[in-house]
């Protein structure tokens, strides 16, 4: 059912998110029930099957795993509801044949803002360098192959500059920078949410503009208004920027690699466009 090309970075992404879930549940006490993960994943895949004619199941699985990693709930209905909204919005809320909202971002935002018994815990990951390094390296691998290194690194570079500027202005110890920058949830956001190639601008320069704007809004939200979850809120607030940038700077839209056809069909001569 889940057919992926060897070149598809989503293989690595799925493996990574899956192992991160296991690590979180087994080692970090994420307060997550296996049945919540199953319901979240099942619902995301179910809607993808129903609405996407069986295509791009990997994307739905990534959305399901991402929501499981980010959303906490004291009941069993929050995760499937978030997964439903995330995947259904991908098919229904579109602008010029492109999903408006980042699916996982929309799901998390819904949980944070509206749903009773739901919350997110940005501090749950701990700050061990080794964890951040591990996430960073795997994330880099995924993003490099997804061709969206610019969104992740653009965001991280701007975030780093803003945090460093603030620390310098406040006269804080520089250890604060290491503390802020090795937050697992920040790196996870960079490499598994803002870097989604289907909901970021098509043009490379536009992606840098978008990433920098998200970082600036997130920084203002978190350190100017003293509110939590800056990056997640900022990505949602910057949603209208994507179609605007796509209109201003046109480029080819990202397509996931197509899986190879079944072996029997290989006998037919391939038609190569001229």
């Amino acid at each position: 059912m889940l057919r992926l090309s060897r070149e598809d970075p989503r293989i690595l992404q799925l493996a990574f998110l899956g192992s991160l879930l296991l690590f979180g549940v087994l080692v970090r006490d994420f307060s997550l029930q296996p049945v919540q993960v199953a319901l979240c994943l099942g619902t995301a895949l179910g809607w993808q099957l129903a609405l996407g004619k069986g295509r791009n199941l990997a994307s739905a699985a990534i959305t399901g795993l991402g929501l499981s990693l980010l959303v906490r709930a004291d009941n069993l209905w929050v995760h499937p509801l978030c997964a439903t909204v995330a995947v259904v919005a991908k098919f229904t809320l579109r602008w010029q044949d492109k999903a408006i909202f980042n699916p996982a971002n929309l799901g998390v935002l819904l949980a944070m803002a509206l749903l009773p018994g739901a919350w997110t815990s940005p501090g749950q990951w701990g700050h061990a360098w080794i964890i951040a390094g591990w996430i960073l390296m795997l994330g880099l691998g995924v993003t490099l192959r997804a061709g969206r290194m610019d969104s992740a690194l653009g965001f991280l570079a701007c975030w780093l500059a803003l945090c460093a500027g603030r620390i310098g202005w406040l006269g804080q110890n520089w250890a604060v920078l290491g503390h802020q920058f090795t937050t697992g949830s920040l790196v996870l956001f960079s490499f598994f949410m803002i870097s989604d190639p289907r909901t970021t601008p098509d043009h490379r320069a536009a992606r840098y503009v978008h990433a920098a704007t998200v970082a600036l809004v997130a920084f203002t939200w978190q350190f100017g208004l003293y509110r939590p979850h800056g990056p997640i809120v900022a990505l949602a607030l910057c949603t209208p920027l994507v179609p605007l940038l796509d209109r201003l700077l046109r480029a080819a839209r990202h397509q996931w690699p197509t899986p190879p056809p079944p072996r029997g069909l290989l006998d037919a001569p391939a038609s190569v466009p001229s």
């Binding site: 815990s121 940005p122 501090g123």
Partner: peptide, 8 residues
């Protein structure tokens, strides 16, 4: 809970 440190 704390947002900038793990709460365990």
């Amino acid at each position: 809970e704390t947002t900038n440190y793990p709460t365990v």
